[in-house]
Structures are given as C-alpha cells and as structure tokens.
Design a protein around this nucleic acid. Structure first.
Lengths: 169, 169
DNA sequence: TGGGCATATATGCGTGGTCCTATATAGGAC
DNA sequence: GTCCTATATAGGACCACGCATATATGCCCA
C-alpha cells in the first residue's frame, strides 16, 4: 500500500483536500504514480482512521466545504519509517514486453506495428517529461526533479532499444 | 487481464500444467511478468470455461495426475486478436521513485541509502539477465531475446541515473 | 434557459491479485 | 523414523484498485 505513503508525503508538503490530491497526482507526480480518485478518498479515510491524518473542515460559500487533510505527528513518523525501510522487491509486469515476446507467432507486420506504436507513445511521454521545469534548488527539490530525469533516461533507453529491435526484424 | 494472454501465449508454445506454467513464469519470462501460483490456476480455469483452452488428464504413477492444458483454435484466435489490438496506455507505479521524491524531508543519509540499496538490486538483476543465453535464431526467438535486451538497457540506464543522482547529493 | 465546466466528496460493483493453507504422494537425506 | 523437497492442484480471506455513478453548487457563455 504505497499509495498511503505517497499521500502522506504530499500532505507533508501542504495540507490538501482529496480533490487537491487528485490534481496533484495527475500533475506533478503522474510520471511515477497514477492514482484513482475513488482510491484517494478511500485511502484518505483509512489514514484518518489510523491517526496519520486529521481533517479540518473549511466552510466555503457556493461550494462544498473543503475537508482539508493535515498530516499528524504520527503520520510523519510513519512517513519517516517508510522512507528508511528496506526496498520492497519489485515484481515486473510489462504488457508491452509480453506482446513482443509472443509476437513471433504472427506475421512480422504485427511486431513492426507493435514497435511503431510504442515508439510514438514513448516519444510523446518524452516530450511531456522534457517540457516540465527542471530548476535545481534545495536538496529536496533536486531529489524531486531527479525523478523526472529518471523517466527521461528510461524513455531514451527505450527508444534506442526500439530502433535496434526494429532494424533487426 | 494480460495474464490470460500471457498464459495463452505460453500454451501456444507447448501444452502445460498449472505447475509447469508457474515454473515457466518464474524462469524464462520472470523479467517481464511475475505470476502468482493461485492466480495461474484461477486464470487457467477461466480460460477453460470460455473455451480458449482444454484439459487432457494424463495419469501418472506415484504423482497427482497431470492436467495438461492445450490451447484451442478459439484460444489462438484470441491470442492473435490481443497481439494486434492497440497498446493499452500504461499507468505508472514506481514505489522506488516515490521514495526518492519524498526523501528530501529526511536526512541526506536516507537518500544515499536508498540509492545504494537500489544500485545493489539493479546490479544483481543485471547479472541475472546477462547470464541468460542470447542466441539469435528464428525471428520468433529473436523477439523473445529482445525482451531480455530491453531489460539490460533499462537497468544500465538506471545505473547511470543512480550514479549521476548520488554524485549530485 | 440551458449547457458545460470547476469545485468537492462519496458509494457500489466487480475483478485481478497476493498470501496462506490444505491435500496427496514419492524419493532422498539425515 | 522423520524431515525436506519435488510434483501437482485448489480453496479462503482479504485487499487494492478501476470504472461508473450520484450529489451539490456556482460560474460563465451562448
């Protein structure tokens, strides 16, 4: 359940409503974490239950009240514990590679189409990543922008592999 | 539900029991797909239900009967349809990058430890990948080994990023 | 007046998936 | 004799998640 930790991390930067969190996930952390709106609200409720977060209702005129979620000391402790805990082994799951692996039973055109489609998608994601601001500031900011550079490197490596593989067909 | 397609793909290469499939997932396709044993049996049952696969029971002495699963013509059609269908957009979920992103609130030692741990894990996976045989044979075999080279490229890119990022701390 | 968009929260349903445990048998190690 | 490993299958509990949908309101634009 890394989503709860990601939420704690974001609430540590600033108190937010579920709605704010959704926008943040879709914006500044989309390159490494996608979150469903319903799941955000559910996880938020669980975090309130276990005391990691508390809610302050801010009335608004003309709009539903903001239920602003603030991280608690307990929440900060859990965040710190997570950041210091050993890395969980990641289990791979890459549908694209699965297709490549099995594409051999089809006409060569299928594999070519696969690679071409992926190339387009990868290029698109690369432009999206590169257009994001990359100012190196405080150490904390540098770590955050490093996650963007990670994406750029991975995508560039992928383009290289696609071209090599397509050429070998 | 890519697992069902991965299973169909493997059964297209050779008929197998659930047990065989588990070994295959842990072995030759582990670099791009991890599968839980219970989930394999459940998915296999679903594939039998929808006619993609049929079972031939092969009695054995001293061991439980082999329930050998064979792909049917319907199954082959579904496999082909999947291989030709448009790529699903992949939603990212990278716990490691999430940690890096939020590590800024901690002592610099935390980020350093994070990168060092990841470096070791990445290096380990690289050696595992490189030790696998890589003979270019038929076009189908070349596509399968291409998925290994994909992993090598990604891991190498990651090592580069880790070193760059660690140096910038 | 009506439509579309932004703000804001929440439930229900289904499903894919992980972990744990149970069952059955044989061979080899200690 | 007991324990471990390999072969082989499967159910139960639980969980995180994705998608669809509902509700409420105010603003702007046509």
């Amino acid at each position: 359940m890394s989503l709860s930790h990601a939420i704690l991390g974001l609430l540590d930067l600033a108190p937010m409503t579920g709605y704010d969190l959704k926008k943040t996930f879709d914006g500044s952390v989309a390159h490494f974490w996608a979150a469903d709106q319903a799941q955000i609200y559910r996880t938020l409720a669980a975090l309130v239950d276990d005391g990691s977060v508390d809610v302050r209702v801010v009335p608004q005129k003309g709009r539903p009240d903001r239920r602003e979620h603030h991280i608690t000391d307990d929440g900060r402790r859990r965040l710190t514990a997570w950041l210091g805990s050993p890395l969980e082994p990641e289990r791979s799951r890459e549908p694209f590679l699965a297709r490549v692996f099995f594409a051999g039973r089809e006409d060569p055109a299928v594999a070519r189409k696969l690679l071409a489609e992926r190339r387009a998608a990868t290029e698109e994601r690369l432009t999206a990543l590169r257009s994001l601001p990359d100012p190196a500031g405080t150490p904390a900011e540098r770590l955050r922008t490093a996650t963007l550079r990670y994406g750029v490197r991975q995508l560039e490596a992928e383009l290289g592999w696609i071209d090599e593989t397509a050429a070998a067909l």
